[in-house]
Nucleic acid binder design. Structure first.
Length: 766
RNA sequence: GGUUGCAUAGCUCAGUUGGUAGAGCACCGCGUUCACAUCGCGGUUGUCACAGGUUCGAGUCCUGUUGCAACCACCA
């Protein structure tokens, strides 16, 4: 037998252990049931960060545990094309190379992205493997692979034909840097200091009177369609029905009354800019006002509505110029510093401008209704349950989902337009041509929609498309619905909610039974990790320094539900030390030439110590089972530590030094073998390595059969040894406090007189 | 403005149905006897944020207050 190295050095064996077991990560055919986890697909551009490490560790524990217990376990891996994020990254790379992205055609840019994906995409797979993720890698799916694209089209057309997808001119969040619409969720509001400008609008009559409007975005005034006042506001009542003139233009707009206006805000007069403000849009519709767009796609002032000196100028610059001019002309009544929140695009970091554009939307209200019901009725359960509130809150106030993006990297919307704007939504070009022909158009007259779908549209289909949908595959029948979705709270809306809606629609069944929401990983001070703060801890560095098992154990240990994970190196060190403890226990047993892996199930256990340690092991098994079922990985790791340290090492192994008959040695070997097996989902590398070196088995990946089995232990013996252990502590304590006092001698006598074999281990006291 | 959390030892946190406050780190003392100094043995450490209430009994349940955090909404 090969002897274990004196020191625990994970770098010596982790790779080998992984490669040895990689073939067993596939779902088995013969099974007592199915267990499925969808691996949230990382971005193609992604590399492993601590948040990934946490979520994958948890999922891997679940998968390994259930696979080990005889279920056919599928951990569905894959990658997400991550439309905007990826296109941004690649554009930046191209710019570094001196290539002007805007000079590339759509096809050229897509080709560049694909090239880029080939060289650097999938890097994260290797990192996941280093962490020990036991996924069947060859079953990986990509949201842009051929079959996935077909499924996306299929889904799109079905929703369209059911009138759940519609195209409309609506106000959307416009990102002037990326030049695309984005959804509400992709916006981050930031509290900022700004200026509220009070501007004079002269009344159109000879009175010389004026009305004052207040705005933080004065440049939008050229898109104003009215000024609104409260119907009961005595200050302005007389102006209702009159007209005002927008400065520097000859455009006249009416003063209207609308009770949306808050008399105490600003000047009490509200400029209405329907094409550049969400509330104004609604008021505009109510009063049938003109919708005037004054900003183009990049945020330049549109020439036809603005005065000469602002034409085609970027909005921020235009704002400054305009304010200066207003000041000069004494049209500015006052400037007021205010604190207000400003919407930023979460990807681009630029200020989001509401703009009126043609976009595609999903009408979500009916879908949401079913999705709410599924959680209300308990078909889907959130862990911790408090997230259900968050889910309900969003779902009950859901708005149509803008799914079109004006970028090139993504699923191109399967819609074709006829010469007069006729719309043909079909799965493919041939069908579109056919449909067009019926209306009397030729193929040449059609042009295809250039917009692509929001990345989250395809992500929403992930639970069933990865399993083969729209084909009714065997895989789908077996592994859908999935068992649990493990993810962070930050994507409950983006992903979880939408998967539920889409799955119910297309599969007529929920996508997963449980949703386990884990914490966010922060640094040890509780700060969010971010590149700009420079407090990012790289999981790869941690794994190199302490081993993957130590990282996994730490993350599981720290994942207390409802509390953020404060991650520090110190904790990893503690985990590493604990694993070293396991290692040294193994070394000791090896040194004692203990037999491992002997079936104890049929043996009669006669010793009290044997009964005791086996009872404790069985408790460990039960505790781990319960805690995994409850997603209490923090408890489970504590159970493991307690057993190994307090039970196995501190007491049981010590007794072997004084009492080493064949039975107790066999029990030691058996218990330790089972301990390794049970902890394999948490510590796959070191446990499998020890299994191999100690000659227990090649790997615990598929080992569902314990050595100890169902031995019934004597509860009496267990309690008696517990008492004995307690006495040992008392004796040691007394000696420490008062030396070899009378009390100490008395306690020692008590130990020596203990009935049965326990008295033999008296040496343990000192 | 709305919602949801959190507040326990110097630090990081457990404390599952109410029943003598726990762990790890840190700290102090002892220790290299057949694994382990990446260690062992022993020890010290608390107005359980504050104020009320329910109860025989509250860290735990209820109400309020304060502080912190996150999310959503609004933003003239």
């Amino acid at each position: 037998m090969k002897l274990l190295d004196k020191t625990y050095d994970p770098s010596q064996f982790e790779k080998d252990v992984y490669n040895r077991s990689i073939a067993w990560f596939y779902p088995t055919n013969s099974a007592n049931g199915f267990y499925t986890v969808l691996m949230p697909p990382p971005n193609v551009t992604g590399s492993l960060h601590m948040g990934h490490a946490l979520t994958y560790t948890i999922q891997d524990i679940l998968i390994r545990y259930n696979r080990q217990n005889g279920l056919s376990a599928l951990w569905q891996p894959g990658m997400d094309h991550a439309g905007i994020a990826t296109q941004m990254v690649v554009s930046r790379e191209l710019e570094k190379e001196g290539i002007d992205v805007n000079s590339l055609t759509r096809e050229e840019l897509i080709e560049r992205i694909l090239e880029w994906k080939e060289q650097s995409g999938g890097k994260i797979f290797d990192q996941q493997k280093a962490l020990g993720c036991s996924a069947p890698w060859s079953l990986s799916r990509f949201t842009m692979d051929k079959q996935f694209c077909e499924a996306v089209n299929e889904a799109f057309v079905a929703l369209y034909e059911d009138n759940l997808i519609f195209r409309a001119k609506r106000l959307v969040n416009w990102d002037t840097k990326l030049q695309t619409a984005i959804s509400d969720l992709e916006i981050q509001n930031k509290e900022e200091e700004g200026i509220l400008w009070y501007i004079k609008y002269n009344i159109v009559d000879s009175s010389g009177e004026f009305i004052t409007v207040a705005t933080t975005r004065p440049e939008t005034m050229f898109g104003d369609a009215a000024v609104a006042v409260h119907p009961d506001d005595d200050r302005y009542k007389n102006f209702v029905g009159k007209q005002v003139i927008i400065p520097y233009t000859n455009r006249k707009i009416p003063v209207i009354a609308d009770d949306y206006v808050d008399r105490n805000k600003g000047s009490g007069c509200l400029k209405i800019t329907p094409a550049h403000d969400f509330n104004d849009f609604i008021i505009g519709q109510r009063h049938n006002l003109e919708m005037i767009t004054v900003l183009d796609v990049v945020g330049h002032m549109v020439p036809e509505y603005v005065p000469e000196f602002l034409k085609c100028i970027y909005l921020k610059k235009a704002r400054n110029l305009l304010v200066r001019k207003l000041k000069e002309d004494e049209l500015l009544v006052k400037e007021e510093k205010i604190l207000h929140s400003v919407p930023y695009g979460d990807r681009s970091g630029t200020v989001i401008e509401p703009r009126l554009t043609d976009q595609w939307f999903i009408e979500t209200s009916s879908l949401a209704e079913l999705a709410i019901k599924a959680v209300e009725e308990g078909q889907i359960k959130f862990y911790p349950a408090k997230w259900e509130n968050t889910y309900f809150d969003w779902m009950r106030n859901i708005e149509p989902w803008c799914i079109s993006r004006q970028i090139v990297w993504g699923h191109r919307i399967p819609a074709w337009y006829g010469p007069n704007g006729e719309v043909f939504v079909e799965k493919n070009e041939d069908d579109a041509a056919l449909a067009a022909a019926k209306c009397g158009f030729s193929v040449e007259q059609l042009y295809r929609e250039t917009d692509v779908l929001d990345t989250w549209f395809s992500s929403a289909l992930w639970p069933f498309v990865t399993l083969g949908w729209p084909e009714q595959t065997e895989k789908l029948a077996k592994y859908y619905p999935t068992s649990v979705l493990v993810t962070g709270f930050d994507i409950i809306f983006f992903w979880v909610a939408r998967m539920i809606m889409m799955s119910q629609y297309f599969m007529k069944e929920i996508p997963f039974k449980n949703v386990y929401i884990h914490a966010l990983v922060r640094d040890e001070k509780g700060q969010k990790m971010s590149k700009s703060k420079g407090n990012v801890i790289d999981p790869l560095g941690i794994m190199n320094e302490f081993g993957a098992d130590a990282l996994r154990f730490t993350l599981a240990f720290l994942s207390v539900p409802g509390r953020d994970v404060k991650f520090g190196k110190e904790q990893v060190k503690i985990s590493r030390n604990f694993i070293t403890k396991i290692w040294n226990a193994a070394r000791f047993l090896q040194f004692k030439e203990i037999p491992f892996g002997i079936k104890l199930s049929n043996t009669k256990i006669t010793s009290k110590l044997g009964n005791w340690v086996i009872a404790k092991l069985k408790k460990l098994v039960r505790d781990i089972e319960q805690n995994i079922r409850d997603y209490r990985f923090d408890y489970a790791t504590r159970n493991i530590q307690f057993f190994l340290r307090d039970i196995f090492c501190d007491f049981f192994i010590e007794t072997i030094k004084f009492q080493d008959d064949g039975e107790i040695l066999a029990i030691a070997g058996g218990v330790f073998s089972d301990f390794l097996r049970i902890t394999n989902p948490f510590l796959p590398f070191v446990t499998d390595h020890l299994a191999k070196v100690l000659g227990i088995c090649d790997s615990f990946v598929l080992a569902n059969d314990g050595v100890v089995g169902d031995i019934t232990t004597s509860e009496e013996d267990e309690k008696e040894v517990d008492k004995f252990v307690e006495l040992v502590h008392e004796v040691r304590s007394e000696k420490q406090a008062n030396g070899e006092s009378d009390e100490y001698t008395l306690l020692c006598e008590k130990l020596k007189a203990w009935p049965g074999e326990l008295k033999n281990v008296i040496g343990i006291v000192v």
